[in-house]
Simulated assay, not measured.
Amino acid sequence: MTLLARIRLVTFVLMLLGIASVPVCAQKLGPDGAPNPDASVTSQRTLLEQAPRIQGRIDIPDVKASVLMQPAGRAWDYFHEVLLHWGGALVIVGTIALLGLAYLIIGRIRIAAGRSGRKVLRFRAFERFSHWLTAVSFVVLGLTGLNITFGKIVLLPLVGPEIFSEISEIAKYMHNFTSFAFVAGLVLITVIFFRDNLLAQVDVEWVKQGGGFIKSKHAPAGRFNLGEKMVYWFSVAAGVAVSASGFVLLFPFYGTNIADMQLAQAAHAIIAIFFIALILAHIYIGTLGMEGAFEAMGTGEVDLNWAREHHDRWLAEQLEREDRRPSATPAE
C-alpha cells in the first residue's frame, strides 16, 4: 500500500508539472532565446487594417459600448483639438483684422447730403422683432459655442478650473435651449424678407456702379441691395445647415451612429465659424461702417437722404405710395 501511494503521488506531481509547462512551450522564443508573449497575438495594425473599428461582446443593451476602438476617432480628435482651433482662430481673427483695416482705409460711410430731418419708415415693429430675436439668439449661440472650442485655451487659464466648469455648464444649457429661439427667428425672417431678397435687374446695375463704394458713382438699389441679399441668402443657408447639424447633436444617436455624430459635429463647427465671420461683417456695416444704417433696425425709421443715397428705388416706391394715399378729411 505504501508503494502504491508513492506511485500515485509521483504521478500527480508529474501531471501538475506538465500542465504548467504547456503555456511556456506554446510561446515562441524571441531573438535572445526568451519567450515572446506577443508572438501568437494579432498585432493592432493588422486588426485596424481588417475593419474600420474593433467590436467586442458585451452584456448591456447599449451596442455603442461594444465599439472597443475606432481609428476614425483619432482623425476627429485631431480635427477638434488642432485643425478647428487654428482654422477657427484664423477665420475669426482674420475677419476682425480685415474689418479694422477697412475702417482705417475707407472710414465710416457718411450721408453725403447730410441729414434731412425727415424720417421714412423702413422696418415695421414685427420685422424688427423677428430680426432681433434671430440676432440676440445668434450672439448667445456664438459665444457659448466659441466657449466649447476655445474655452479651454482662452478662458480656463484666466478664471481657473472650478469657475470655468460652472461657466461651461451654464453655457451648454444656454446653447441648447437658445437654439429653439434661433430657429423660430430664422423661419420668421426667411418668410418675411423672402420676396424683397429675390434677384432683380437693379442688382446688375448696382454691381456696375461699384456697389456704393465708389464715391463718384451712384449705385441704385431696391429695398435691399445685392450685398444685403447675399448676406440674407448665405445666412438662411448657413442657419438651416447649422440648425440641422445642431439638432443631430442635441438628440444624439437617434438614427445615427458614432461616425454620423462625428460628421455632424465637424459640419456644425465649420459652418458656425464661417457664419460668425459673416455676421461680424454684417454687424460692422450696420454700426461703424455706415452712418444711419443702425437706425433702420433700431427705431425702424431712416433719414430721407440716407434712403435716397442707398435705396433710391425703394424710396421712390414709398413716396409714390404716400402720394397715392388719400389724405385725411379735415374735421368740421
Rank of each mutant, 00 (worst) to 15 (best):
S66Y: 06
F180M: 04
G88H: 13
G142Y: 06
T149D: 12
A113S: 09
E162V: 14
R118A: 11
N197Y: 09
L199Y: 11
I92V: 12
F126G: 06
L84D: 09
T190L: 07
L99H: 05
W76H: 11
D196K: 02
S66N: 10
G114D: 03
I96H: 00
V159N: 08
E169A: 12
R108W: 02
P161L: 06
F123S: 02
K152A: 10
L133V: 11
F193C: 04
W76C: 02
L90N: 01
L101N: 05
A125W: 10
F150H: 07
G94T: 10
V93Q: 02
L98Y: 07
G107Q: 04
L156W: 12
G73C: 03
V204F: 14
I92T: 07
Y173S: 07
K64V: 00
F182V: 06
G145S: 09
L98R: 02
F177Q: 07
F193T: 11
L68F: 06
A181N: 07
K208G: 00
Q70I: 02
V191D: 01
L83C: 15
R118Y: 04
E166A: 14
F194Q: 05
A135H: 11
L146F: 13
L146G: 10
H85W: 14
I111F: 03
S137H: 07
L98T: 08
S137Y: 08
L90H: 02
A113I: 00
E166W: 07
Q209C: 04
V202A: 10
R195A: 05
F194L: 13
R122D: 00
I167M: 15
G185A: 13
G142D: 01
K152F: 14
Y103I: 01
F79A: 08
A89F: 14
H80L: 12
W132D: 10
V82E: 08
I105S: 05
G117K: 04
A65C: 02
K152R: 14
P161G: 00
D196T: 08
V139I: 14
I96C: 03
V187L: 14
N197V: 09
N197A: 09
K172R: 14
T190A: 04
L84M: 15
H131N: 06
I163C: 05
R118Q: 09
F129V: 12
L101V: 07
L158H: 05
R115G: 07
A181P: 03
A181R: 03
E166F: 05
P161Y: 11
R128G: 00
G73V: 09
V120W: 03
E127T: 06
G117W: 05
L84C: 08
A72K: 06
G88A: 15
A181F: 15
I163N: 10
K172C: 01
M69A: 05
L188E: 09
R110H: 08
P71D: 07
R124Q: 08
K152H: 13
F126A: 02
L68P: 06
I148Y: 14
F138Q: 01
A89S: 15
N147L: 15
E81Y: 08
F150G: 10
M174C: 14
K119Q: 13
F180K: 00
V140I: 15
V202I: 14
G114V: 13
L68M: 11
